[in-house]
């Protein structure tokens, strides 16, 4: 398990994207980051993933236990990014294929079973529903076996019922991984956050998460209260 320390401000040319902030993603737990659109949540995630080429971080991103970041991270976004010409199983095996490794079909099929898609494993993405596609994306993320998982609003395009299901499935299967979930949904943060950060133009604010382990029931009093508090905070920040 790996903890990740993020510290610094982001710049594009001479323009500041966000001021100096710092936070830790605790090993093996869910860190949820909330904030209004355009405040730089996704930028933070892309900086950690090493995907930013134009925005520069004046600061550092390091693993507490040491070692390189590359190869430790997997990514899941709002768009499932499944390759349309591959079946569900082949999509799960994409990492193997792109790195030139021998595809581990047994493991892929096991993960497909875990996310409940055994019947659909030979289908191509167009034949799957939005929720099913995100399940394939989750299986693909799990297939990578990376200790750090970055989630960029992965459930925001799903309808409420499927979203709740996916949150539960993700909480169950991503257990033990160090997770950063970027979301604009206070309810999601209140359900899943073991640490909740609210990002605004002024910096980052640590909000005390509801008591109890995750995943929390959506109708629990403390969860609802936290949701209300987060929403208030978001509105104040704007």
């Amino acid at each position: 398990m790996q903890s990740l320390l993020f510290e610094g401000s982001a710049w594009i040319n001479e323009i500041q994207i966000f001021p100096r902030i710092s936070f830790t993603m605790q090993a093996g737990s869910w860190t949820c980051m909330l904030g209004p659109s355009g405040v730089g949540k996704t930028t933070i995630l892309r900086l950690i993933a090493g995907l930013e080429s134009e925005i520069v971080l004046d600061g550092s991103i390091v693993l507490k236990e040491g070692g390189r970041l590359s190869g430790q991270i997997s990514l899941m976004s709002q768009t499932d990014n499944l390759l349309p010409w591959l079946s569900a199983t082949e999509n799960v095996l994409l990492g193997n294929r792109l790195r030139g490794e021998k595809p581990d079909f047994d493991k892929a099929n096991e993960l497909i079973k875990k996310v409940g898609l055994t019947e659909h494993r030979k289908k191509r993405p167009y034949a799957l529903s939005g929720g099913q596609r995100q399940r394939v994306a989750l299986a693909r993320t799990l297939m990578e076996e990376r200790p750090i998982v970055l989630l960029d609003e992965p459930f925001s395009a799903l309808d409420a019922r499927v979203r709740a299901e996916m949150q539960e499935l993700a909480a169950q299967h991503l257990q033990g991984k160090t997770i950063l979930l970027v979301t604009h949904d206070p309810a999601e943060a209140a359900r899943l956050g073991e640490r909740i950060l609210v990002l605004s133009v002024n910096g980052i604010k640590d909000v005390c998460p509801p008591a109890g382990g995750i995943i929390r029931a959506y109708d629990e009093q403390t969860v609802l209260a936290c949701q209300g508090q987060l929403l208030r905070l978001l509105r104040e920040e704007e």
Binding site: A49, L51, I73, S77, N81, L94, L98, E144
Partner: peptide, 20 residues
Amino acid sequence: GMLDLSRVMNGNPWRIMLNL
């Protein structure tokens, strides 16, 4: 998004070319 994913997966550039 697909290119980002393949980079995070540490895909080999030629394989990314061929497969994606």
